[in-house]
Amino acid sequence: MDIAVKEKPYWNPYIAGFFLGLVLLASFLLLGWGLGASGAGSRFGAWLSYLVVPDHTLGLASWSSYFEGGAAPLKDSIVFGAVGVFLGGLIGALTAGRYKVSVGRGPRISVPARFALALLGGTMMGFAARLGRGCTSGQALSGGAELALGSWVFMFAVFGGAYAFAWFVRRQWL
């Protein structure tokens, strides 16, 4: 029991990509749509908001559809998918000996500053994913494989935005 499980190496990125592609293809074949993530965050936000201010939440045009017909916003495939991502990540991390409670950051940034930037970046992505109708999973990855025009535009924009902004937050990572 005391013997720490040795950390396994990551997969070769091409093999990992091939496996990820097969998962995505399985999603297309079984369900008829691809993978997604940010929608779960949005639905969770709507759910929380409904607990606090129900009437106001139902009046928000971009959230009201989650409640249409008396539907429960969390009872949606994307939420179950997100739970699955968490569980799959946990199984992956544990079986690879990589689970470790820690904070990912460069050597030159404090933990509170890292948390603040993580929250800020998460908020930016939550906003952007609603505007762009998806995130890196739902748009870039899934839409990219479907050859959707807007998804390819989105994918290049993501890389563009990230490279343009990387310089400003270099102290966080390098």
Binding site: L35, G36, A37, S38, A40, G41, A82, V85, F86, L87, G88, G89, L90, G92, A93, R98, Y99, K100, V101, S102, G104, L117, A118, L119, L120, G121, G122, T123, M124, M125, G126, F127, A128, A129, R130, L131, G132, R133, C135, T136, S137, Q139, G150, S151, V153, F154, F156, A157, V158, F159, G160, G161, A162, Y163, A164, F165, A166, V169, Q172, W173
Partner: peptide
């Protein structure tokens, strides 16, 4: 999608994750 992509990309490098990978990140501690 153009503007959303740009903002999401910036959010990506600021936060260090994208929405999907953040779930896997939290799951690994």
């Amino acid at each position: 999608q153009l503007v959303g992509g740009l903002v999401l990309g910036a959010g990506f490098v600021v936060s260090g994750y994208c929405p999907g990978t953040s779930l896997a990140g939290a799951a690994s501690g």
